[in-house]
């Protein structure tokens, strides 16, 4: 069975493309597909508890797995205890583990 890995590197407040890709991730989640969204680089601005990112919360509610690169957190001074609901801290090892499965459809934005 396929799983989807969306690696989102863009600040969702600046890049409309980020919202478009996350909307596709949400639609796939609603279709009961296995979806992981991995926030990296400036995509990490989406994960603070106070960040207003409705589509992030919708993805969480729809059952998507939400992860953030711990390096991106530390680089931006984002504390692990200040993350929005459902956000897990991971790293490139976790991304590689997902990529190592031929059933993963990986999309970098």
């Amino acid at each position: 069975m396929s799983q989807y890995l969306f690696i989102e590197s863009q600040d969702p407040f600046e890049d409309k493309g980020a919202e478009a890709y996350l909307a596709t991730a949400l639609e796939l989640s609603k279709r009961n597909e296995s979806v992981t969204v991995f926030f990296v680089e400036n995509g990490a601005h989406a994960v603070r508890n106070g960040a207003q990112v409705p589509i992030r919360d919708a993805l969480h509610s729809a059952g998507a797995r939400l992860k953030v690169d711990g390096f991106a957190l530390r680089e931006r001074g984002i504390k692990a205890d200040g993350l929005a609901a459902g956000i897990e801290v991971g790293g490139v090892d976790d991304m590689v583990d997902l990529l190592a499965s031929p059933d993963t459809k990986a999309i970098w934005h």
């Binding site: 478009a20 596709t24 639609e27 796939l28 999309i107």
Partner: peptide, 16 residues
Amino acid sequence: RAEVAGLFQEATRIFA
């Protein structure tokens, strides 16, 4: 836009 998810499902790999 709502049809894009279906294109993702049909493809084996997705390059952005």
